[in-house]
Design a protein around this nucleic acid. Sequence first.
DNA 1: GTTGACCTTTACGTTAACGTTAAGTAATAT
DNA 2: ATATTACTTAACGTTAACGTAAAGGTCAAC
Lengths: 134, 134
Amino acid sequence: MTSTSLKKPSAIKFTIGELAEELGITTRTIRYYEERGMITPGRTDGGQRFYTRRERGRLKLILRGKAAGFDLQEIKDVMELYDVLPDSQVEAAQAERIVQMIERRVADLDIKIEELIALKESLLEHKQTVEGWR
Amino acid sequence: MTSTSLKKPSAIKFTIGELAEELGITTRTIRYYEERGMITPGRTDGGQRFYTRRERGRLKLILRGKAAGFDLQEIKDVMELYDVLPDSQVEAAQAERIVQMIERRVADLDIKIEELIALKESLLEHKQTVEGWR
DNA sequence: GTTGACCTTTACGTTAACGTTAAGTAATAT
DNA sequence: ATATTACTTAACGTTAACGTAAAGGTCAAC
């Protein structure tokens, strides 16, 4: 039995430039997120970074979080909730803590969603008003 | 007929400190928003600022916008849509432009709302996973 | 009319989230 | 083998959104 048959399908690698272009950001930005400890790419023998689908996924998450109006620290906090080993290693107390943090985050999101909907309805009302002027 | 009977109920005035405390921000912040042209308080004979309910309303709008993740320029742009004279002075073409801008803003809001909902559902899914560990 | 709390402008400081060189190294195509 | 092209670190620059301190004027109460 060779090791090839055991290989996970995550052998797909991206350079920093490829990812940057795909995501519409600069390489500086990607390195900055690494500086902030939000992603941890691998390195080639020569010392250049490479990224797997996992890192690409995390980057997309960061961008979505930013689009939603969260700062990098908040996004990191949320992402760390996903970084817990999915093992039975996790004690019940620890799992409970995580669940509670998730619930708090969801509550925050609900508030933001309500704010946005309120803004939207206010805009739509004003639209009706302006349309009445024609 | 005296002028008192014609007086609008907006004679209520606030000092900058009162507003700051009520809204949970600093006076510096309020002055900064004025610098940015987002509010235009009145002045006493002595030169001190005073704010009416209108300005208080605009401040609240700014804070809601910020909570929703917009920057000050975006908020200003949106608020200016409300500042058009509600007269028949507005030409049809102008009204049409405003309606279109409102529609673009609403579309932006819809995208942000979708992002937030997607994040929320992702969190809720993860919550299920973690709960399975107990 | 004086005091103390609150206000004024001016101006420099701060943090987040990158942008922008610069000087050098690695990967790749020919 | 060499020439591009893309990568590396290091470091200083930039913008938004205020914070903070100084030096002084105003307001309300007594």
